[in-house]
Every structure is written in C-alpha cells, then in structure tokens.
Nucleic acid binder design. Structure first.
Length: 108
DNA sequence: CGTGTGACGCGAG
DNA sequence: CCTCGCGCCACAC
C-alpha cells in the first residue's frame, strides 16, 4: 500500500494537486487518508509531496514545512488565497481524465 | 508474529 | 467556524 501511495503521488502532474483521500482511494484504501499523510511525512524527499493537500485544498503541513510547500506549489503555478487555500476545482488532479489507464479500461 | 499507538484526514453535527 | 470520533495502516515494541 505504501508503494501504491508513493507511486500515485509520483504521478501527480506538475501544476496539479491531489488530496490525501484521493491518493488513498487510488491506492485501493478509500479510508486510509491519514496513512497517506503519515507515509509522505516519513518517506524520502524524492516525491512531489507538496502536491498533496487535504480535502479542503489547504496544506496540512503548517506545523511542518508549510511555507516551503506553498512556495513549491506557487512555483508550479498553483495559486493560494489569503487563507492558504487553493481552488481544488481548478488544480485538483483528475487521474481518470488524464492518465489513469487502468481505471479508464474498466469503464470501457 | 501479536499488540498498541498515533498520524500531514474527513465528514458529520 | 469549531468539535468529535471513526477508521485504517505503518511502525515501534
């Protein structure tokens, strides 16, 4: 599962973001959103972990490295409002519509 | 291998 | 906006 999470996070395209719940679901564990966060917190720094936000489009690392995360995302073109929240309707990654081939096949 | 625990969540009230 | 508690799994023991 950890592997699946890392794999999916690595798939998040530049300039897009995903939520913990979304990653968990894609990994086959719809209810394990928290584990996703835990995994990202302790995995390496190789992944675009900054592209993972909570379900409200806000960073969950304010007490960790919030500033850094926001900077990294803004550098990708993701805009945050004064409250540190980005518009998921605009930036949320939608794998089914972009590159989740396996899920796409199922619907065919 | 069994148990305990806590974590970057989430949705409901 | 705030609070509550469920749920699930990686990790330390």
């Amino acid at each position: 599962m950890k592997a699946a999470v890392l794999k999916w996070v690595a798939q998040i395209p530049f300039g897009k973001v995903a939520t913990y719940g979304q990653i968990a679901a894609l990994s086959g564990h719809p209810r394990a959103a928290r584990q996703v966060g835990r995994i990202l917190a302790s995995n390496g720094e190789d992944l675009p972990w900054q592209r993972v936000l909570n379900a409200k489009g806000k960073i969950s690392t304010e007490s960790q490295s919030g500033e850094l995360q926001i900077r990294l995302l803004e550098a990708e073109g993701v805009v945050f409002n004064a409250e540190g929240v980005c518009d998921l309707r605009t930036y949320l990654w939608q794998p089914e519509l972009s590159q989740d081939r396996s899920a796409l096949k199922k619907s065919l």
